[in-house]
Design a binder for these strands. Sequence first.
DNA 1: GTCTATAGGCAGATAGAC
DNA 2: GTCTATCTGCCTATAGAC
Lengths: 172, 172
Amino acid sequence: MRERGFNGFSYANVAAELGVTSATVHYHFPAKAELGEALITRDTERFADALATIHAGAPGTQAKLAAFAGLYADRLNARGVCLCAVLVAEYETLSEPMRRAIDRLFTDSEEWLATVLQQGREDGSLCFEASPRDVAGTIIGGLLGAMLLARSNDDVNRFRSAASLLLATVAG
Amino acid sequence: MRERGFNGFSYANVAAELGVTSATVHYHFPAKAELGEALITRDTERFADALATIHAGAPGTQAKLAAFAGLYADRLNARGVCLCAVLVAEYETLSEPMRRAIDRLFTDSEEWLATVLQQGREDGSLCFEASPRDVAGTIIGGLLGAMLLARSNDDVNRFRSAASLLLATVAG
DNA sequence: GTCTATAGGCAGATAGAC
DNA sequence: GTCTATCTGCCTATAGAC
């Protein structure tokens, strides 16, 4: 799904990669939209766990932001990008449950990021004028776009470069 | 294609919207990849024309940048985003000619934007530290991501807000 | 240029044996 | 839980009449 999008893969593809038949995949996920939903939910949980770890572990807001961008970098390689980046592009073709799952993934990350931004501005480690919410949305959107461009250019450095420029806009 | 992506629409969809049969669409575009390529090429030409107009008409670099972002806003409504945003997400599933056409669309806009940025920095109307190329890529990626998020949130203001924040990062 | 008709394939999905 | 076999439907694409 991260590689070819929701409309770009089939049960047969998944089955072949697992070395089973497509009927087997249907046994676990009767409908394709359920499979898609489950994948988003799993990623949402993993992402939330990672955010909690960052919150507990990373020393300052700057480090937190870098670690946040790192989560996206982890999901980027030569073929695949993060789930949200592919799926939001296919948004109009997806089932309501899948849309809601994607929305949740975005609002969760945006809220987390907005909170960190606000704290950073209060303790003086960050500096920006717009609302934390707007800045968070801009940064997340920037990371998504950068991932997609990095893949089509087959150059992960494009992502790193964009991520550091985006984070620099709020540096104190 | 802007609404549902390349893998999300069919000849039947296009035919129905035009009030013809799918055979008629095949007469003009025998293969689907050719149809996709033609649509990208057409958009590339329109985009290039618009960029030339901006270059000739917009008074200063700040105005040029705002007009550039406006081109993306023109391509955003409640259901559709710009071609590049949808297609780059499906990149792995597309034909080589389609990929090349998308790459061209990106490099064209990035070059134009990088040139404006450089001129702005030289005449003092803009201010940024990284290379014009990197900044251009970051802004374009940011606009793409913002378009996708604006659509899924059904809120065009999210795009406007992100666009103005992105452009503010290079304001003199 | 547009139509009807249809080919051939693959998609998502199910039934039933093991 | 996994398999083989199969259904149904839509997909891309083509042939040939008008």
